[in-house]
Amino acid sequence: MAKVHVQTQINGEPVDFLCEPQQSLLEVLREELSRTGTKEGCGTGDCGACSVLLDGRLVCACLVLGVEATGKNVTTIEGIAPEEGLHPIQQQFLEHAALQCGICTPGLIVATKALLDKNPNPTEKEIRYWLAGNLCRCTGYDKIIRAVQASAAELSHPA
């Protein structure tokens, strides 16, 4: 099948790639572009491990076609941190041990960013419901919730 030429932006950088029309954005990121920070947990949009932002909107990369990235801004886990150091969300995940095996963590951090961009002061219930789309089998979620609360506080009132 003829491949499609796609021009997009990934983490602020212009990127060109060729992909098959049926390839998902997740497959393109991991297999064509070797950006393996975004993980596959289910391939059916049920676990959130592949969460990325598409023009700031939280999506499962496994449910978006690569060609749909045309002309859009894709933000992946590799684009969350500033050039030096960590994003406050990453820093809080680190300080709260909000991860164990780490495979779901990129998706959770991206999903948290989407939440806090939209709602800078979420309640615990809002955090728990927003992150209900991201499965984590290790942490029992408790420390993730604490890390998100601390991130919200830090982003609203930077030290």
């Binding site: 950006r35 975004t38 590799e78 995940f93 680190l94 991860l99 780490g102």
Partner: peptide, 23 residues
Amino acid sequence: TSIPRKEDRRFITGHGRYTDDVE
């Protein structure tokens, strides 16, 4: 004591290397 985990920096930046990441 509860020091932060040394391994976490690679995981929170998307640089963990799991088997499927190996090409």
